[in-house]
């Protein structure tokens, strides 16, 4: 059976093109299938290759071997079907909030300006920034800026949303709030999402499924079907539940040794 997204025996080796540089094995044969509407989290230590794999899904990197097939078509490069939210530089400072959201639709020729406006305003309200359309993004908080980026990406109407540690630079309260909002938005919009993070609690709270990555070269250590263990609709209280707590501890145990290995690897290089 064909899946929405198929990641098929992907490997990635960096540094083989330039002479002299030692080749670094980043991804070591990863395969997985992702269904439409799933929120999948790639969890792993920093520098392990989880971002690289996600960027390949977005067509921003090419695999050394293996292939990625989205909706029956092999991914060859970036396009509007694969939206991206970054941790920093996630919105354009020279555009106001609404114009940043509208940017997601800017290069579409199949709808007119009024429709673009309507869609942009719709998603801006969805992320709770309806009253801030006329603000410069430098004047709003970091958390609000990430919401602008999320609204822009949703407005662009991609088939899959790729989020590269989008809440990594935010403080704890802001993170929790944005995680809640994002989970909500994903349920409402039935979007397929790949979310990259090294924060275990964030992963458990957001995910339908978590793929735990090993230290470099990345392999899948374990796949955890969170959707079988936690309800689809999540709220703040869930974080205090025993199931959540136990899940978090079990995964922390898994990732701790990997984080250590990952760190030793960086030092020895």
């Amino acid at each position: 059976m064909a899946h929405f997204l198929e990641i098929d025996r992907i490997t990635k080796v960096f540094g083989t093109t330039s002479a002299g540089a030692a080749a670094i094995n980043v991804i070591d044969g990863i395969s997985m299938n992702i269904d439409e509407g799933e929120v999948v989290v790639f969890l792993g230590p920093s520098g392990c290759g989880k971002s690289t794999l996600m960027r390949m899904v977005g067509g921003l990197e090419t695999p050394t071997t293996g292939r990625i097939v989205l909706e029956g078509r092999e991914v060859k490069g970036p396009d509007r079907q694969k939206g991206m939210v970054f941790q920093s530089y996630s919105s354009f400072p020279w555009l106001k909030v609404l114009d940043n959201v509208r940017f997601g639709l800017r290069f579409r020729t199949d709808i007119d300006a009024a429709e673009k406006d309507r869609i942009a305003r719709h998603y801006l309200r969805m992320v709770g920034l309806g009253d801030f359309e006329d603000y410069w993004v430098n004047r709003i908080s970091g958390g609000m800026r990430q919401r602008v980026a999320i609204a822009r990406t949703f407005a662009a109407g991609p088939d899959i949303l790729l989020m590269d540690e989008p809440f990594g630079a935010l403080d704890a309260q802001n993170r929790e709030f944005l995680q809640l909002q994002l989970r909500d938005l994903c349920l409402k919009e039935r979007k397929t999402v790949i979310f990259v993070t090294h924060d275990v609690e964030e992963a458990v709270f957001l995910a339908d499924r978590i793929f735990v990555f090993s230290a470099r070269p990345a392999k899948i250590l374990e796949e955890i079907a969170i959707r079988d263990l936690l309800p689809a609709e999540r709220d703040i209280k869930l974080r205090e539940s025993e199931t959540f707590f136990n899940l978090r501890n079990r995964i922390l145990g898994l990732t701790r040794t990997q984080a250590l290995r990952s760190e030793q690897m960086e030092v020895s290089q």
Binding site: G59, L60, R80, K82, F92, F107, P158
Partner: peptide
């Protein structure tokens, strides 16, 4: 990241130059 936002919103190279690189 700015360039990649352009690439993933369907901008062509000319559009990336005009709408992203120049203003940035």
């Amino acid at each position: 990241e700015y360039i990649e936002i352009g690439l993933t919103t369907g901008a062509k190279p000319r559009q990336i130059l005009r709408s992203i690189v120049l203003p940035a």
